[in-house]
Design a protein around this nucleic acid. Structure first.
Ligand code: MN
Ligand code: MN
Ligand code: ZN
Ligand code: ZN
Lengths: 168, 168
DNA sequence: GCATGAATTGAGAAGTCATCTCATTCGCTC
DNA sequence: GAGCGAATGAGATGACTTCTCAATTCATGC
């Protein structure tokens, strides 16, 4: 289902575009390629900046429009990651995110058991699941150790956004 | 831990405020009360509008500031619900959300098994969880039936935002 | 290859949600 | 009730996203 390399993803995009009477433009290919080359969980802004280092100029409007399209086509996924804007990543295999409130590190985790329980939950509610996001915010191992070392003194640079979004 | 009625929540707020050298203002009480009286998953804007029907004027700035504070104090939780803004709700007992992409209905579900698996996942990653949100988007029972009835004709009014945010 | 026409882009305005600044007001303590 | 520091309101500002429309580009058929 999900592409496992860029070439496959590009074929999948071309198929989606022609099936829907849309055009395969250099901008669309460049944005898809940028995601595969740089990886991670970039925002629209980060993708635009990454593209600006290449030979092809792509406007912000096109970046946003294309990201929507690539999500729609199943080539990307979109999540919030506890910040005030959207993050995109290539849709390889589904996973959930552990987000460190202090350093911002993102740990990707997989749990088929949780997925199964989620489907069960939906079934019981008569709900047809189409997608889901599980985000856990907290402290990564490194930050836990640093806090332990510092004692109570300096709590380091906590990420305001992450703290705010997922208030306990 | 979490309050089970408004009076208890107010006491909890007063305790939090005095402990932190903050003041108990009519605005803060009004916002907390609004959440308990109206329930649901309102946005900051919805809360401001709800308050505007009462005798006390509260500015948008104060609404936003107070919601942050109430989340910090553990009296509210904050989530995105697949839309481009934050939603707040009183923090009674933790639950997850099923969000209908078509009609916007929010179904609250509880799964201790999933919570346990999440803790296990975090432990394995050396991660200390502080909070989490699990949001599943899809189609509620009513919408599934309506779509089945309509055949392929009218797919009804799908919620753009929900569709966009949690792309599969 | 080249004309044709619809899809797409870029520029910039506009919109939404959230935060910030600072003068004024208000709780709290004495 | 005076005094002081915290909190509010008004409005500017900012971050992110969407919209509008003229200009451009891609696909299709000659
Ligand atoms: Mn990821
Ligand atoms: Mn809820
Ligand atoms: Zn960390
Ligand atoms: Zn529905």
């Amino acid at each position: 289902m999900a592409a496992s390399n860029y070439e496959e993803a590009e074929r999948q995009l071309r198929r989606y575009l022609s099936k829907n009477g849309l055009r395969c433009t250099v901008e669309r290919l460049a944005i898809l390629k940028s995601l595969w080359e740089n990886g991670g969980h970039p925002s629209a802004e980060m993708i635009a900046q990454s593209l600006s280092k290449g030979p092809l100029y792509v406007s912000r409007a096109t970046v946003y429009r294309t990201l929507d399209l690539l999500v729609e086509a199943g080539l990307l996924t979109c999540s919030n990651l506890g910040e005030g804007h959207r993050h995109y990543e290539i849709n390889v295999d589904h996973h959930d995110h552990l987000i460190c409130r202090r350093c911002g590190k993102i740990i990707e985790v997989r749990s088929p058991e949780i997925e199964t329980l989620q489907r069960k939950l939906c079934k019981e509610a008569g709900f047809e699941p189409l997608s889901h996001t599980l985000e856990i915010t907290g402290l990564c191992g490194a930050c836990r150790r640093e806090i332990a070392d510092d004692g109570e003194s300096d709590n380091g640079a906590w990420r305001r956004s992450a703290v705010r979004q997922h208030g306990e």
